[in-house]
């Protein structure tokens, strides 16, 4: 990743400041209540993630705070202003990366960036210089004259991110930024997000990749059915919800869950069954194994691993498929 110093953000004085505040925020589409009265506060300079299955209300929330979708109820303050559809003084300071890669297919990479800069009234010379920097930053240099139609999915996404940075936004909004990308492209996007954060840009992220949220987010909320279920930093949230250790058990005959659960005794925080697998969660590492040994219990196959956000997610939102 190329080091850059182009992003000079206003107000990066290290002070804690609430840049987005939602109170009892609601979104309805006809009879469908997509967001059902949620509260959250996003601070300047942090990376804040919305996690949840499809239909949880993440994108509706993101679209409202991007001033792209009308607010059905409650309050939403972005950068000190009431968010509302078409509130251009907010949009001037947001960089929005939407789910669909809506780069302009009729334009080259460079033209995409220059045309977009013009929507913000940016002077041409400044836009050209900044566009070069951003193409380098997103590792698209040397392709500035290429047609967008020739780009891979990962390149298109990187171009959308570069475009969202053209006007030097204070807040970068990323709606599922790495969905559909290969591992290399995901790493590149993550690296870019971390660099931007280091430069003081506030990052708002939605994702259903747990590793992405764990790696990038300072704080996150887990949403489902339009509500916020939990809010915290990733590690405290994991330990609070599912402890520090997960023990996965397979038995050829399906096994007797109750025998293992009983044997785990007071080490057990929570148990869960995913199909073939019984998962036992423990606050303290090693204790379930000790308790099994003292009961003379030996599962056919057993995997002991640290807990992660996926455990939290599945525990909180259940295992049923969402359409």
């Amino acid at each position: 990743m190329v080091a850059t110093d182009f992003h000079l953000t206003a107000g990066a004085g290290g002070q804690v400041e609430d840049v987005i505040v939602a109170r009892s925020l609601e979104k309805t589409y006809g009879d469908v209540r997509a967001v059902r009265g949620i509260d959250f506060t996003i601070r300047r300079g942090e990376c804040f993630a919305f996690l949840g299955p499809n239909g949880a209300g993440k994108s509706s929330t993101i679209r409202m705070l991007s001033c792209l979708s009308p607010i059905s109820g409650g309050d939403l303050i972005v950068l000190g202003r009431k968010a509302d559809i078409g509130e251009r003084r907010i949009k001037e300071r947001l960089g929005i990366v939407s789910q669909d890669d809506n780069v302009d297919p009729d334009l080259s990479l460079m033209e995409n960036l220059l045309v977009y800069a013009r929507y913000f009234g940016m002077p041409r010379a400044e836009a050209e210089q900044h566009a070069e920097q951003l193409l380098t930053f997103m590792q698209l240099e040397g392709r500035s004259k290429a047609a967008v139609r020739e780009l891979s999915g990962g390149m298109r996404r990187r171009l959308v991110i570069a475009r969202a940075l053209m006007h030097r936004p204070d807040i970068l909004v990323l709606d599922e930024p790495t969905t559909g990308l290969d591992p290399q492209a995901r790493l590149l996007v993550w690296g870019a997000v971390q660099q931007l954060k280091a430069q003081g840009v506030t990052i708002v992220l939605t994702t259903h990749y747990m590793d992405e949220a764990e790696r990038l987010a300072d704080r996150l909320v887990v949403m489902d059915h339009g509500r916020i279920l939990q809010e915290d930093a990733p590690r405290p949230l994991i330990e609070r919800t599912v402890g520090r250790e997960a023990v996965e058990i397979w038995q050829r005959d399906g096994g007797d869950d109750q025998a293992f659960i009983a044997a785990a005794e007071d080490a057990l925080l929570l148990s869960d069954r995913h199909g073939e697998t019984l998962v036992l969660y423990a606050a303290d590492p090693g204790r379930i194994g000790q308790n099994f040994a003292s009961h003379g219990l030996a599962p056919e196959r057993m995997l002991v691993r640290p807990t992660n956000l996926e455990d939290v997610f599945l525990t909180l939102t259940g295992r049923d498929l969402r359409e």
Partner: peptide, 15 residues
């Protein structure tokens, strides 16, 4: 299909 207008609306441009 191309989302050109959707992209415009992420800028201060109005309908």
């Amino acid at each position: 299909s191309s989302g050109v207008y959707a992209a415009m609306l992420t800028s201060p441009l109005t309908v």
